[in-house]
Simulated assay, not measured.
Amino acid sequence: MNVATRIAPTAGQMALAATLAGGGTRRADAITHVDAAVYTDPARHAAEQRAIFASAPLVIAPSALLPEPGMAVPHDGFGKPLLVTRDKAGVAHVFLNVCQHRGTRLVEGSDVVCQSRLVCPYHAWSYTLDGRLTALPRPDAFPGLDKTDLGLKPLPTHEAGGLIWFSFDDAADFSHPEALGHDFDAFGLAGQYLFRRRTHDVAANWKLIMDAFLESYHVQRLHAATIGPFFKDGVSTGDKIGPHQRSAVGREVEQAAVEAEDWPTLRRAITYTYQMFPGTVLIVSPDYVNLMILMPQAHDRVLVEDFMLIPEAPASDKALAHWEKSWNLLDGGVFAAEDFRAAELGQQGLSSGAIDRITLGALETGIRHFHDEVDARL
């Protein structure tokens, strides 16, 4: 695994910082609409699964979930039994979590396992973490069997900048994930420590979750009692990296912070958020990172796995208490009680038929770009 040592901001990060120091950006003629049916129609959900989630590169985990060689973790969130591994050479892989003998699920549960071999619980066929079938009981019962033909089924996998991506499509293009990786190297995402992870089951369309992280209009309102006071209302900007979006929201962004061209200085003044198409959000707070992976289950249900990444493992009780406080504020308070709850309330309202479209204003243009990208894939 490549652990980044670079701490200088990228040119793109600096450009957003300079815009914020100048007061942010806003479009004066940006009122647009999105049909309510894109959130409530089961047929639309099925079409998105076929056209987007079955073919696009998807983030499955941070590199920090498997920090050392010889680790693996089952993953069921995307509708098929998957297995993420890091082999003895440190290379990440995503396989179908299925034994090639009789189709038995190979690894159970959802926890990370540390072992050099994966052994099927049914007939004890065993595989290395790079997917090779290495042994089976009574090989004499399979005359002429070539073990090289019966390795685990691999899926295209790409690790860059501290994230592990995969796709169900063998022709998937990972060039944009690679470009994003340069930004993530700037703050050393690959070298972060995984402090906590939790999966939320949210009764809302997955796009309502993405919408919440594509605009800052709600921050002073929805988060008034939590993080709202830390930000300036309406001071934001953003750009695109392929189908993905990069946005920045300022606290006290002065020109001096921009001119410093130093990541720690910039990070204290600006919260960068990366909205990775189709359904991943990465938020860079002053001293930790939250990664949220969205896994749609139905038109009105989505699983959201939240990872909190910190610079290093807590070395004292005081440090542990500090990170626990941050985790409880963000995951349990801001995200679960505010953002995810707002998405559920939105799903309830849209499903009622009370309105046939939503209205987007000048501070919500990120949502417009996102829905345009979804529509283009369909």
Rank of each mutant, 00 (worst) to 15 (best):
H218N: 10
E108R: 04
L222S: 12
V202M: 00
A337Q: 10
A172D: 04
L163Q: 12
F184M: 09
Y127P: 08
I60T: 07
K325T: 15
H369C: 06
R105Y: 03
T40R: 07
P57H: 13
R27K: 03
L189Y: 01
R357T: 14
R197W: 13
G109M: 09
G234F: 01
D211C: 10
G162T: 15
A47P: 02
Q13T: 13
E48Q: 11
R341K: 15
T19K: 08
K318P: 12
G366M: 06
D356W: 11
G109K: 05
E108A: 05
P229K: 07
A30V: 08
H244N: 13
D169S: 14
L150D: 05
V374I: 15
K153S: 13
R26C: 10
L145N: 08
Q192P: 03
Q100H: 09
M292P: 02
E108K: 02
R44E: 08
M308E: 03
I241F: 10
D211K: 02
A43G: 11
L282G: 03
P57G: 13
Q220M: 14
Y122I: 09
I7Y: 03
W263G: 13
T19H: 07
L363T: 03
D185V: 15
V34M: 10
R221S: 15
R221K: 10
V107I: 05
T273Q: 01
A36W: 11
I241W: 00
V112R: 00
G151D: 05
D111Y: 00
A15S: 11
A30E: 02
T273P: 02
P286G: 05
A337N: 13
A376Y: 00
L136N: 09
T25L: 14
K318Y: 09
R86K: 07
C99Y: 05
V253N: 01
F370V: 01
Q220D: 12
Y272S: 09
Y193N: 11
K80L: 15
H244C: 12
A342C: 14
S175N: 09
A257V: 00
R196E: 09
A92I: 08
R246P: 06
T32Y: 05
G131W: 04
D211T: 11
K88N: 06
F168Q: 03
E259N: 12
T359R: 00
K207W: 02
P74M: 07
F213C: 01
P57K: 15
I358K: 09
V119I: 11
I310A: 05
V284S: 06
D211A: 05
D29I: 02
D35A: 15
E68T: 03
I164Q: 02
F166V: 07
A260N: 10
A354T: 05
D41H: 13
D183Q: 11
R86L: 07
H45Y: 04
H200N: 06
L152T: 04
P143W: 15
H45F: 06
D130H: 03
S285R: 07
E178N: 12
L363M: 05
P137H: 15
H123V: 13
R198M: 14
D29R: 12
A204E: 00
R246V: 15
V94C: 01
P137G: 14
S316Y: 10
A203E: 04
E324P: 11
H45N: 12
A30M: 11
H218W: 11
G24L: 10
Y39A: 01
A18G: 10
I358N: 07
R132L: 14
A56R: 01
